[in-house]
Design a protein around this nucleic acid. Sequence first.
DNA 1: GTCTATACTCTGATAGAC
DNA 2: GTCTATCAGAGTATAGAC
Lengths: 217, 217
Amino acid sequence: MPHGLTIWLNQITKPMSEADHNTEHSILEAAHKVFIRKGMDGTRMQEIADEAGINKALLHYYFRTKEKLFESIFNQVLQKFSSKVVGVLMSDLPLFTKIERFADTYINLLLENPYAPNFLVNEINRNPERIVNALKGQGIKPDFLRQQIKREIEAGIIREIKIEDLMANMMSMCIFPFVARNIIKSMLEMNEEDYMAFLIQRKTEIPKLLIGYLKTK
Amino acid sequence: MPHGLTIWLNQITKPMSEADHNTEHSILEAAHKVFIRKGMDGTRMQEIADEAGINKALLHYYFRTKEKLFESIFNQVLQKFSSKVVGVLMSDLPLFTKIERFADTYINLLLENPYAPNFLVNEINRNPERIVNALKGQGIKPDFLRQQIKREIEAGIIREIKIEDLMANMMSMCIFPFVARNIIKSMLEMNEEDYMAFLIQRKTEIPKLLIGYLKTK
DNA sequence: GTCTATACTCTGATAGAC
DNA sequence: GTCTATCAGAGTATAGAC
């Protein structure tokens, strides 16, 4: 029994073996490539088939519908990004260290997957429930962070701030320059090379700003 | 001669008269409503026709193609947002005042047009050239701001910062919570009411953070 | 498992009457 | 200007041979 499930299970259990270099795997690779650039509505099954070097019929043999194929890719991408958030923020590190690690690992991840934030954000519009449901089981515990911030405020390490603002600021500053890449680039009259350097330098610039503001002494 | 141009010209010259309550105007209204939620690829001409209370043939009579109709809406939305940036940032106000005004006017604009940033951002993917070209004639002068920042750094009013980072931070923190509304809402386990209050309160929270960091004394 | 051929639906766009 | 009817093409999905 093919139909997507096996591949999807393989992907999260096995790391990557020569057995994955089969048709299922190349379909997923091709689908990822096309979906992440063009989204659900903008993608044509023919284009995925071409990219994978097969025909449309075979796509439907493995993943019954376009919707199901899309879902596989969507879950995979969301998982990759949310696991980074959880890994860094739900640990026992001090807040300032978390901020530094978040900016560093997240921007690195974004540099490797520059189309992912737009892809995810587009899907918010198209199907808000999907992303809300998918986030449920990811182990994000806002109260855990809320407690940490409360403790560090009381200990006089940081100044008053709400977790909502801190999270929103941190995520916004890391992600938005990728989402609105061409707008910002164009507004500030930057070329591709400059913009690349700009993004990289923000791995340290964002923590500098946030910590600089939060630090009490 | 119908075909979009007249309406478009009317929209930017006349404020809004009873003469605009004609078919052209209701088509533009309907198209705005549908396009801004579903984007170019996700929108069906039939849906716009239904929304406007007319039939598809009439759509094509006024705007020859879907692409042309979309372009009208796109330009209108982009114009509305970029003119706010220009109005605030390309003035002769001190930097701290600009930051305060930007956050206030921009978030107000976003509260009135919550779907606009996703709409614009989606179009970046689909057609990067369009947005880059459309931004050309908007009167954004990065060097003007760059000079001001330089002067205020030299005058000891603000600490060292690059215009690229300042602009990116300011825009990111204002806009991203609208773009990723459902993600952030879901991650932080907020309801719609809380999130609304959160967005409004950021009109003062964002300048507080930016100015708090930039202030030298 | 993989292919070719095709059914069927949706959608943008046009023809032509009024 | 506005409508009904319809075309032409694209796109998802399936049938059936190999």
